[in-house]
Amino acid sequence: MKVVLLGNGNSVHIVRWANGLVSRGVEVHLVSAHTCGLDFDSRVKLHKLSIMAPWGYMFGVFSLRGILRKIKPDIINAHYASGYGLLARLSGFKPLLLSIWGSDVYAFPRKSKFHRYFLKENLKAATAIASTSQCMAVAASKIYKHRHVFITPFGVNETHFILDDRFRGDDVVIGTVKSLKSIYGIDILLDAFSKVLNYFNGKRSLRLEITGGGPDLNILKEQAVHLGISEKVIFNGPVNHDDIPRILNGMDVYVALSREESFGVAALEASSCEKPVVVSDAEGLAEVTVEGVTGFVVPKDNPQAASEAIIKLVQDASLRKNMGRAGREHVLNRYTWEHSLDVMLEVYRCAIAIHKER
C-alpha cells in the first residue's frame, strides 16, 4: 500500500504514525507545509511544500498536486481537519481519510460562523473521517454528520511505557504531564494539592511534580506561592517524549484535570506504567479511564472532589498498586500501539473500498 500522510512534520504524533506505518511495510510519503525536523525512519519519504504554513494550507495546493501526480498513492490521510483538511480538499484527491485531532473540531469552529462552515466543508469533502475517540467523533458530527466515521485510537508503546521502580523516591509523588494552559486545569490541580497537604498536615511526605511548558507557567508559580505550597511543588518544564516514562515512573499518582480533552493518551501512558490516575470528567479522559478500577473520575473544575480522590490513593498503597495493575491490563487489552496500527491499516482499506464503490 502507498500512503501519503499530509500533516505537520514537526509533530511527534505524525512521526509515530509515519514510522509505525512504514514498519508494517507501507510505502509512506509525508507531505508537509512545516519543516520536518524530527526523527523519521529513513524509509519515510519526506516532501516539503513550496509554500509553508499558514499560507501553504491554500497556496501549497499546486505543489501538492504535482507531488501526488508523481507518487500516485492509494490513499491520502490528512491530519488536522482545519489547515491540512483544507489543503487536502483543495487538492481534489480521493480517497481522502481526514484524521481529526481535537482543537480542530472543538476550538476552531467556535471562532466564528465562517470557521464552522469552513470546517464543515473540509469534513464533507473527505471519503471518511478518523477520530481517536468516540467523544471527538460526536463533536465532529455536530459540525457535519459524515456517513463513514472510524475510531482510530492513538495507542501507547507498552514496551516503552512500563513500570520501572528505579525512579521512585521516599516521598509520595502526585504528578502530571501537560501543557501549562488553562484548558488543562493545572490551576485546579494546585488547589486540590493544597487541600491534600492541609488534610495530612505534615503527617505524610508529599510532593507535586508538574512536567510541561506553556504560557501559564508564571501564573501557576504565583498561584503555588499564594497557596503556600511552592516548596512542595516542582515545575520540571518541557521534556522530550522519550523522557516521559522516566517522569511517570517517579510518580505514585497521575492526575489530569483538564477542562476539555479529546483523547486521554497521557493518562493511558501513566496507566501503562502502572500508575493509578485521577482524571476529570472531560470526555476524552473519562473515555479511557475505568472508574474505580484504573483510577477515579471526578467533576471538572472541582478541586475538592479531586483532592478526595488523591487522598484515597495516598492513604492506601495497595489500592494504588491494584489500580495501577488494572490500568496496565486495560492498555494491553485496548490501547497498544500495534493495535492502533492494525486499526488504521484496516481503515485505509475500508476508505479505499468506499471510494471504489462510488
Rank of each mutant, 00 (worst) to 15 (best):
residue 305 A to D: 06
residue 234 I to K: 09
residue 24 R to G: 06
residue 282 A to E: 08
residue 229 I to D: 11
residue 276 P to H: 05
residue 335 Y to F: 14
residue 35 T to P: 13
residue 17 W to M: 12
residue 34 H to E: 08
residue 61 V to P: 00
residue 278 V to E: 05
residue 350 C to Y: 04
residue 317 A to C: 03
residue 187 D to L: 05
residue 280 S to T: 00
residue 175 G to F: 10
residue 54 P to S: 09
residue 69 R to A: 11
residue 286 A to D: 06
residue 265 V to Y: 02
residue 204 R to M: 09
residue 337 W to I: 04
residue 329 E to C: 02
residue 23 S to D: 14
residue 194 S to K: 11
residue 124 K to T: 09
residue 87 L to R: 06
residue 233 V to F: 08
residue 72 K to H: 07
residue 16 R to T: 07
residue 189 L to P: 01
residue 105 V to I: 15
residue 55 W to D: 08
residue 45 K to A: 11
residue 124 K to F: 13
residue 295 G to L: 06
residue 5 L to M: 06
residue 344 M to C: 04
residue 262 S to V: 01
residue 196 V to A: 05
residue 185 G to T: 01
residue 99 S to G: 15
residue 307 S to A: 15
residue 210 I to T: 01
residue 116 R to N: 06
residue 120 K to P: 06
residue 282 A to T: 08
residue 80 Y to C: 01
residue 209 E to C: 06
residue 272 S to D: 07
residue 157 N to R: 09
residue 251 M to Y: 15
residue 126 A to T: 00
residue 316 D to S: 07
residue 163 L to D: 12
residue 275 K to N: 00
residue 311 I to F: 06
residue 81 A to L: 08
residue 230 S to W: 14
residue 56 G to M: 13
residue 19 N to Q: 12
residue 228 G to V: 15
residue 59 F to E: 13
residue 276 P to R: 01
residue 115 H to G: 00
residue 207 R to P: 00
residue 131 S to F: 06
residue 307 S to P: 03
residue 358 R to N: 13
residue 225 V to M: 02
residue 299 P to C: 07
residue 20 G to D: 09
residue 132 T to V: 15
residue 90 L to K: 03
residue 42 S to H: 08
residue 53 A to W: 05
residue 277 V to M: 02
residue 340 S to G: 13
residue 177 V to L: 05
residue 61 V to W: 05
residue 117 Y to P: 00
residue 349 R to C: 11
residue 259 R to Q: 14
residue 190 L to W: 04
residue 238 P to G: 15
residue 176 T to M: 08
residue 82 S to T: 15
residue 317 A to K: 13
residue 185 G to I: 02
residue 92 G to Q: 12
residue 27 E to N: 13
residue 313 L to S: 03
residue 172 V to D: 00
residue 182 S to A: 14
residue 179 S to H: 04
residue 15 V to K: 14
residue 290 V to H: 01
residue 213 G to K: 10
residue 344 M to T: 10
residue 292 G to V: 12
residue 199 Y to G: 00
residue 331 V to W: 01
residue 144 Y to N: 10
residue 291 E to S: 10
residue 46 L to R: 13
residue 50 S to G: 13
residue 68 L to K: 04
residue 251 M to C: 03
residue 104 D to Y: 01
residue 32 S to Y: 02
residue 71 I to Y: 07
residue 310 I to A: 07
residue 113 K to T: 00
residue 155 G to H: 05
residue 179 S to L: 08
residue 226 H to A: 15
residue 351 A to L: 05
residue 273 C to K: 02
residue 331 V to A: 03
residue 157 N to L: 08
residue 304 Q to S: 15
residue 190 L to D: 13
residue 57 Y to Q: 05
residue 196 V to I: 12
residue 155 G to N: 10
residue 117 Y to S: 13
residue 340 S to M: 09
residue 180 L to W: 05
residue 247 I to Q: 12
residue 277 V to A: 01
residue 16 R to D: 15
residue 355 H to M: 07
residue 246 R to P: 01
residue 347 V to P: 03
residue 246 R to K: 11
residue 330 H to E: 13
residue 208 L to H: 10
residue 47 H to V: 00
residue 292 G to M: 09
residue 94 K to D: 06
residue 62 F to T: 08
